[in-house]
């Protein structure tokens, strides 16, 4: 196996980057890289969570990610109320929100035996309504220090990208080295066989649905801080994105196999392909068509590559 499936996401991201810069003859490379790393970071954080859920096996997916991001961002900013030195309080509120959302999602799936698609989609209507109700149309600015952090850089790389990278390393270690990761991968291949091999499959499932919501809440908190306040539609585009980065990144949609580096590359790619089409002045309709076509093409390229190995 010389070519790993995640190479494709990274190669496509690099290509989109170069093609965009060809239009400007290389000017604006720094700005484009900054934007790609920042927005790619949000996609990567939710994508990592979605990857864990998809790894659980067929039928497992979390469609409440956008609503969870919005609710966590809204509640965190409302709590902080632009007061200085409340960043950690806000973070705690956001993560607690994510934890609560994850608990509700899992209880719906486990106790009511709802298919995860239905459970998370229906519950997301409730989370979105809670966000609307608590926000009441106000746009509260994040505390200044937090906003500076969210838009700032460290060694030239956006801080949010560092957060995504650290999270990716943690997830990678868990999947590759930890017992819990093995349990997750086993449950995703064949839940019945995993249970009969002594794996606590329900605990694995619960932890996974909690993780994805906590990740989404973290992304919502950072995104709201980054963009100067929470907006009610701020999570909308992350529904498709979170699933697309998992698939493009080379994780198996059938479960049992996940790919952390691939998610990172795919997250960069998803932003770069849109900005490439933007800089070439493509209209909204063309842009959607081309984005869809490119995603399909890259998934086909990655999967035929894999089946030949």
């Amino acid at each position: 196996m010389t070519m790993k499936p995640w190479v494709w996401g990274w190669a496509a991201a690099g290509l989109a980057f170069v093609v965009t810069l060809m239009l400007t003859s290389g000017r604006g490379a720094g700005e484009l890289a900054y934007a790609a790393l920042s927005f790619g970071a949000f996609a990567a954080i939710v994508g990592l969570g979605q990857m864990l859920v998809i790894t659980l096996g067929p039928g497992n997916v979390d469609l409440s990610i956008p609503a969870c991001m919005t609710l966590a961002g809204t509640l965190a900013l409302k709590t902080m109320g632009s007061d200085p030195n409340t960043a950690f309080l806000g973070l705690a509120v956001a993560l607690a929100t994510g934890f609560g959302v994850g608990c509700v999602n899992f209880l719906l799936i486990w106790l009511l035996r709802l298919p995860p698609i239905i459970a998370t989609l229906a519950a997301s209507l409730i989370y979105q309504s809670l966000a609307i109700w608590s926000n009441r149309g106000l746009r509260i600015k994040p505390p200044e220090g937090l906003a500076d952090f969210a838009t700032g850089r460290f060694i030239g790389v956006p801080n949010v990208a560092w957060v995504a990278l650290i999270l990716a390393v943690v997830v990678w270690v868990i999947l590759e080295r930890a017992v819990w990761g093995r349990w997750l991968l086993a449950s995703g291949q064949n839940a019945r066989a995993a249970r009969l091999a002594g794996i606590p499959v329900e605990a694995v499932r619960a932890a996974t649905y909690l993780s994805v919501s906590v990740f989404a809440a973290l992304a919502g908190y950072l995104l709201a801080s980054f963009s100067g306040g929470a907006a009610l539609n701020m999570g909308a585009e992350y529904l498709l994105t979170s699933i697309a980065v998992v698939v493009i990144g080379g994780s198996s949609i059938a479960g049992g196999n996940s790919n952390v580096p691939g998610v990172l590359g795919a997250a960069l790619f998803m932003f770069l392909v849109v900005s490439m089409l933007n800089s070439y002045g493509a209209g909204a309709g063309i842009k959607s068509v081309l984005t869809g076509t490119i995603i399909i093409a890259i998934v086909i390229a990655a999967s035929t590559r894999r089946s030949r190995q």
């Binding site: 017992v179 093995r182 349990w183 991968l185 086993a186 291949q189 064949n190 019945r192 066989a193 995993a194 009969l196 091999a197 002594g198 794996i199 198996s252 049992g256 196999n257």
Partner: peptide
Amino acid sequence: RDGVLPLWSILRNMSVSVLARDA
């Protein structure tokens, strides 16, 4: 149906039940 974890190696299939013990 009940036993084999098809994506995994022989090694991982063999050790799956004792991972927690030896961790």
